[in-house]
Design a protein around this nucleic acid. Sequence first.
DNA 1: TTGAAAGCGCTAACAA
DNA 2: TTGTTAGCGCTTTCAA
Lengths: 345, 345
Amino acid sequence: MGITIKDVAKAANVAPSTVSRVIADHSRISENTKKRVRKAMKDLGYHPNVNARNLANKSTQALGIVMKSSTDKALQNPFFSEVLRGISSIAHQEEHSLFISTGETQDEIYESVERMVFGNQVDGIILLYSQVNDQVTDFLLEKEFPFVLIGKPYNQIDSITHVDNDNVTASIDITNHLIEQGHERIAFIGGDTDLVVTLDRMRGYELALEKAGLPIKDEYHIHEEFLKSGGRDAVHQLFQLDQPPTGLVIVDDLMSIGVMTMLEELGYQVPQDVSIVSFNNVYISEISRPPLTTVDVNIHGLGCQAAKCVIEKVNNVDEPAKRIIVPFDIKKRQSTRETKRASSP
Amino acid sequence: MGITIKDVAKAANVAPSTVSRVIADHSRISENTKKRVRKAMKDLGYHPNVNARNLANKSTQALGIVMKSSTDKALQNPFFSEVLRGISSIAHQEEHSLFISTGETQDEIYESVERMVFGNQVDGIILLYSQVNDQVTDFLLEKEFPFVLIGKPYNQIDSITHVDNDNVTASIDITNHLIEQGHERIAFIGGDTDLVVTLDRMRGYELALEKAGLPIKDEYHIHEEFLKSGGRDAVHQLFQLDQPPTGLVIVDDLMSIGVMTMLEELGYQVPQDVSIVSFNNVYISEISRPPLTTVDVNIHGLGCQAAKCVIEKVNNVDEPAKRIIVPFDIKKRQSTRETKRASSP
DNA sequence: TTGAAAGCGCTAACAA
DNA sequence: TTGTTAGCGCTTTCAA
């Protein structure tokens, strides 16, 4: 159908290989012929056939993006678009295409990754999640396929290049923010416990409490999927305790908003009756009522770094596994407030 | 590197072409050899090289997805993930891969589409937006490249296959919901006026007012980008009018939430002082306070239909341009309430 | 029903 | 500096 390299060669009166070299901007080509060839390409409207090139090169200039199966859709959404924007900007800059995993279930996604890898569709892969016992991760490791993970690997941490925040410290810091404001009964609301990010944030929360000499109570941990029907009851229970919490650390902004709605139904006001801090700083956290005090994890930055890292790995197979920590920043807004210290008379 | 068709052929003691036929599940192959070849493929762990296949076939089993440059990021986000889920489920089912446009600016995205088309990277394209005077649309039309558009084309409506809601009717219906509740001063808050969806929804709003004999006032139209700094002032102005509105039709759920926050700052309560209806029914609209009365446009369904349509178009070049209307559904929640009719004494 | 061989469009080693 | 040529892995016509 299209114009091939041969057509260009003919028009410019050179060999196809010369055209190929001009495309690759090879050094040993005279400026003169370069010019002639370029003109011919333009005149004919030539565009290289990516498949042919990939076949000959054994390299596609493409990256695969694998997202978690979106059962817990609400939790993933805003994060996803934002991280994709980051990846996309670097990918474009480096002239790489983006391939996305398809499928709804875990198995379908796995299949889709297999196709990417075995079919030589991509040179490297970015995993947008980190999960306990993930078959996709295992597969990529076993195949020694270049990939990076956004988040912290559950195991083999030293052999997997990953881009993450220091979620433990972030969680300590934001929990401390509550503690500094006098809160002593602080509960933690997490998401999927299969996600490493949930575990890290919980860890930070516990460390902060411990350091402050506050008790860590089981009743103060909730891990259900909030955004579904169960959430309401769990929150309800939490506030039925003899000693209901006055502060809440919630792992995700969207969850925070859901919780705030439930709290209002139960007759609690944020921040008057209960303070909330959370994570991610997705757009909605600025316009919620009240605007959320949250950890800005720089989602866009995570995406950019991840893209840079895979490309590096692809270009150099021996690139050692590394760990990139993207700095976080705490955004103090209006979802928290000072509380009287119960213990200080 | 990998196992090729030749290796399989050797192992199964047949010619490469036979293997190829087995892969394609050709009819004129004896069950016996089929079995033998399949076993060999499994034993060797064979996976076809997609690039080679694409090259020989002049067809990639891939679809391109083009999203709007995300300057107005807040508006696009939740919609995007959801529509992608829809597309992705069909794509997987039909064994197609998904390619995503890269780049941040309009021009970068255009480049990226050119690469997809000229580079034979995809068989068809789905445009996730419909915009006035869009260069990408023009390009695809000119190249006669198979594509479908989600939304309503700005022009050439009969020659562009598109998947849309009946936004005019949806807007009439939801505006009527306010009118039925006694609202007479109803304002409209739209987004980017370059987006056809904004225009359609505005049209429906106006038609509904007209039908009800209510005046259409210029002061009741706002089209700035709310989610940025300007929004606050615009909303402020609206409620400084001698006759401030009691009802608001807002084109997007996320915008609605932003507006509710501003209203609260100005001392207005939703729905006590002002009722709000909006569009899309993204997840957040259920958990906002109050939950939003909104048009469920079935974002997932839009994605599914779009994917089906491109695949049809790809498989049959002569497939006529068609228009698929995905039904909407009004979700009545708590952001609206009856108001006293000012005019009825 | 199967095999041999040409070719998809491009790259890269080898020659010139 | 440039041309010739042999593949990359697969599909498909033509022949057997």
